[in-house]
Computed example of a mutant assay.
Amino acid sequence: MAGMRPIACATIAIAGFLSCGCSNPIQGSPSAEGMSPSNTQEVRQTDAQGTPLPFHNTFSKRWNSANDGTSYEPCTVGADRLVSLGIDPDSARDAATVDGQTLRGCDWDYFPPKSEFLSIYQIVGNSESLDWYKVQNRIGSNWLPDEVINGRRVGVASDKSGGCLTYVQSGTAGVVTGSGYGLLPSLPEKEICGYALDLTRATIDKIPE
């Protein structure tokens, strides 16, 4: 249900960028380089490789100096990868809610029956390193032991409201993948974090180092 999505993603700490357009970040706020949609005839509609976004982009500053540390674009990861995890690629929504917002990425729904309360997102924002990110998000986040996926270090954190995220460094940016559940009590930590880890594993080969 669309009404459950903000509950599922709002409580993971994102230093310097918001996830899923949530309104209650623990730290940071949107970087608004212009707050209104631009002329849609002049707005970029593809990622760095020329792959079209899965929605019509109205934000001319969707790509900006706060998220240009990597060329990776979560929204064009590929429908087959999403479907293999039970994620509906046709549900893709831009994670940004204003032009020039710090974050860049998408959030999606799962196919039924998971779609009712489960949500997933993947976003990009410039960040120095996983260690720096952990310091910035030490309040409200329960950092679990790091994972190693395809030889790369992946941070994993849950929060007391039932969300979980992973963090992968890409250039001078962090790629954050988050899962949430729209009911309390949430799913067990291992299960909810498993959804974020699954999408991380499915996309990490596309994320530049």
Rank of each mutant, 00 (worst) to 15 (best):
C106K: 04
C106I: 02
D107F: 14
D107N: 14
D107I: 06
D107G: 11
D107M: 12
D107Q: 14
D107W: 15
W108V: 02
W108A: 02
W108M: 05
D109H: 13
D109G: 11
D109Q: 14
D109V: 07
D109L: 12
D109W: 10
D109I: 02
D109N: 14
Y110G: 07
Y110N: 06
Y110A: 06
F111H: 12
F111Q: 09
F111C: 07
P112H: 06
P112M: 07
P113E: 06
P113H: 05
K114E: 13
K114I: 01
K114Q: 13
E116A: 15
E116P: 00
E116H: 12
E116T: 14
E116R: 14
F117P: 00
L118F: 11
S119K: 13
S119W: 11
S119R: 15
S119C: 00
I120K: 10
Y121R: 14
Y121A: 15
Y121D: 13
Y121Q: 15
Q122H: 05
I123A: 15
I123P: 00
V124Y: 04
G125W: 01
G125P: 08
G125A: 10
G125V: 03
G125D: 09
N126W: 10
N126H: 11
N126V: 08
S127A: 13
S127G: 11
E128R: 12
E128I: 10
S129L: 04
S129P: 08
L130E: 02
L130S: 04
L130Y: 01
L130P: 00
D131Y: 01
D131V: 06
D131H: 03
W132L: 05
W132Q: 12
W132F: 12
K134M: 00
K134E: 03
K134L: 03
V135F: 02
V135A: 01
V135K: 03
V135H: 01
Q136H: 04
Q136D: 04
Q136C: 01
Q136S: 05
